[in-house]
Design a protein around this nucleic acid. Sequence first.
DNA 1: CCTGAAGACTTCAACTCTAAAGTTCGAAGT
DNA 2: ACTTCGAACTTTAGAGTTGAAGTCTTCAGG
Lengths: 186, 186
Amino acid sequence: MPEPSDAAAGAAEPSLEEQIAAYQREFQDLDPQVEQVVSALQRLNRRMNVAYGRQTATLGLSNAEWEVLKALVVSGAPYELGPGELAKLLGLTPAAMTHRIDRMANEGLVTRERDETNRVRVIVALTHEGREKWLEAMRLASVFEEDLLQDLSGEERQLLGQVLTRLLRRVEDAQPDADGRLSDLD
Amino acid sequence: MPEPSDAAAGAAEPSLEEQIAAYQREFQDLDPQVEQVVSALQRLNRRMNVAYGRQTATLGLSNAEWEVLKALVVSGAPYELGPGELAKLLGLTPAAMTHRIDRMANEGLVTRERDETNRVRVIVALTHEGREKWLEAMRLASVFEEDLLQDLSGEERQLLGQVLTRLLRRVEDAQPDADGRLSDLD
DNA sequence: CCTGAAGACTTCAACTCTAAAGTTCGAAGT
DNA sequence: ACTTCGAACTTTAGAGTTGAAGTCTTCAGG
């Protein structure tokens, strides 16, 4: 048996510390404190997304579907949006949204109808089943988030929230939505 | 001229506050403090990724290519890794990495050769041009990051970095890499 | 009215990723 | 040496995305 010639075996992901050390080695004028914040933030976010993905998967929901459900719920009653609106909110092209809605309509998560008062528009509406799925996913997510922050004191949570919000404001002010479609949904 | 019948026009992305309010309206047992942290974190991260994407694009680099370059640089001299290693590090399938390397080799960012001591392995090596591209991108990124954190005091930066690192550790301990390929690279 | 322009959505072709099968090579056991 | 097994990579088929072109509808002006 050829021993796992550490091709894919030895490519352990570098720890956060190792990675930061590597950056400093390769690029001297780098503030380690800044890099610590940025790298931890990005890595944390990725791990969280993986966790969300696993959870929604247990409900038979893809991340793509989860995002559409979220957008509809956040929009509030009557939980209706057009494909174009959804595309913009999720940061997809309208074409992609057309197909995504196809699939979700087939699964009964949403309905698609033409708006009779303005026949150019199409209305995508959350079904009861779609809303239930969202609720289930939300329950899982909130447990996970609560657990994640468990070790933080109330004060730390507050501070963390405030600082992150300040940073967010700074980015948003700096990039005034330049191209129209930024975002995935939270 | 049909006036922008607010189909895609009126779908302004909800502000962070609006979104959190919407979640609470639709799902009562939600800790607003937790949600503030999580939502700000996710949104901030997305905006940052958009910013990185714009920057690397000005260098004629896709985000995909940027990630491969990062992995190679972080691996240290001689800046060589196998396709399998890269795939694992970036959280892609080996198949996807094969194609990505094809493209990057065509553009001269990396070279691909068979390892003559073990002809099963393939060695992907950073070219001089690839390293230069990485450096340019890194310069842009570090300026952006420095600017982002500009309003934070040294103390705040330190605290933020520590808290995020604690959270990261918590996630990583909880999901011991379950399926083998988690991650994009930071 | 009829025409032209612009909006909202869909269709189409090209691209990238995943999952699974296929190919090639190296290391043991016999 | 021969065979077999496993590892590393590539190839192939299918899902999902983008960008561009196309369709349908509405509205404004001649």
